[in-house]
Design a binder for these strands. Structure first.
Length: 249
DNA sequence: GCGACAG
DNA sequence: ATCTTGTCGC
C-alpha cells in the first residue's frame, strides 16, 4: 500500500498511517486532568452526567472487553481482557501497574482507577465494541460511576457490574437464574439487581453509556459462565489481575 | 447526629 | 480492595 510521492520515493498514504497507528495503540480522549480535589471531582461528575447517551447499542457485537483493578498496598494494576463475544475466546490481555494517586472514596472510584485503566487501554491492539467494568455505571449518587465516566474517555458503549450494593432501593429478585428487579433512586430506575446464578447472591447491573438497561442485563447474562456470578469477561480480568502480582513475585 | 458507603 | 483461620461441601 505504497504510492509514489512527488519526490520520487514511496510514502504511506495518510489514511494508512492512521490505520497503522491505531494498531499500535488504542487512543482515548483526555476529557480532564486527574489532579483534583474531591469537590472538583464531584463537579466534573455532575457536568458529565448531562452528556450520557440513553440509546440502544445498534451494532453487531463482536468484541467485548472487561476491566478490573487490583491492589498491593499503594500499588495498583489495571487489567483489560478482550474477548470474542460469539465464541467467548480470549483475544488479548493488557496490564498496567502504577502507584495509585488517591485513596478510595465512595462515589469517586473512577478518579482512583481510571488513570491506570487508560494506560492499559493504550496498549490494546484490538478495538472493543463494548466494555464491561467491575463497578457501577449510572448506579451512582451523581449517575457517574466508573463505567459511565470511562465511556467518555474511551469513546465506547459501557456497562457496569458491581458485586455489592451501593445506592438505590430494590426488592430482592427471585432465586431463579436470570431473575432481576429494578433499582430505584430519586424515583428513577438506574439499574437492576440481577440473579446471574440460581440461589446465589445477585450482582448490580447498570448502564455505563450508549446501551439500554435491558441490553446491559442481556449482555451480562450472555457472558455469565458456570464458574462465577460475574460475567466471564470480568472474571478473567480479575483472575489475571492477581496472576500479575504472582508473576511479579 | 447516626448509619451507609462500588473497589 | 486487602487482611485473614477455620470450616462446610462438591
Amino acid at each position: 500500500m505504497l504510492e509514489a510521492s512527488s519526490h520520487g520515493i514511496y510514502t504511506t498514504p495518510m489514511f494508512m498511517m492512521v490505520h497503522l497507528l491505531s494498531a499500535i495503540s488504542m487512543n482515548y480522549n483526555q476529557i480532564h486532568d486527574f489532579h483534583l480535589t474531591p469537590l472538583q471531582m464531584k463537579e466534573i461528575q455532575s457536568t458529565l452526567k448531562r452528556k450520557i447517551t440513553l440509546r440502544p447499542y445498534q451494532g453487531n457485537l463482536q468484541v467485548v472487553a472487561g476491566v478490573d483493578v487490583a491492589y498491593q498496598g499503594t500499588q495498583g494494576v489495571a487489567v483489560i481482557v478482550v474477548m470474542d463475544y460469539p465464541s467467548k475466546e480470549i483475544l488479548e490481555t493488557v496490564c498496567y501497574e502504577e502507584k495509585v494517586a488517591t485513596d478510595y472514596i465512595p462515589g469517586l472510584l473512577a478518579f482512583r482507577e481510571l488513570p491506570l485503566i487508560l494506560k492499559a487501554w493504550e496498549q490494546l491492539t484490538i478495538s472493543p465494541d463494548l466494555v464491561f467494568f467491575d463497578g457501577n455505571g449510572i448506579l451512582h449518587p451523581r449517575q457517574m460511576g466508573i463505567a459511565t465516566h470511562a465511556s467518555f474517555f474511551i469513546d465506547r458503549p459501557t456497562i457496569g457490574v458491581a458485586k455489592s450494593h451501593f445506592i438505590g432501593s430494590y426488592d430482592s429478585p427471585a432465586q431463579r437464574q436470570g431473575s432481576y428487579s429494578p433499582i430505584i433512586d430519586q424515583g428513577e430506575t438506574i439499574g437492576a439487581v440481577l440473579r446471574t446464578q440460581t440461589a446465589v447472591k445477585p450482582v448490580y447491573v447498570s448502564i455505563g453509556n450508549r446501551v439500554t438497561l435491558q441490553q446491559a442485563i442481556d449482555f451480562t447474562m450472555q457472558l455469565v459462565g458456570t464458574e462465577s456470578r460475574v460475567p466471564e469477561i470480568i472474571r478473567q480480568a480479575d483472575i489475571r489481575t492477581r496472576q500479575f502480582w504472582r508473576e511479579k513475585g
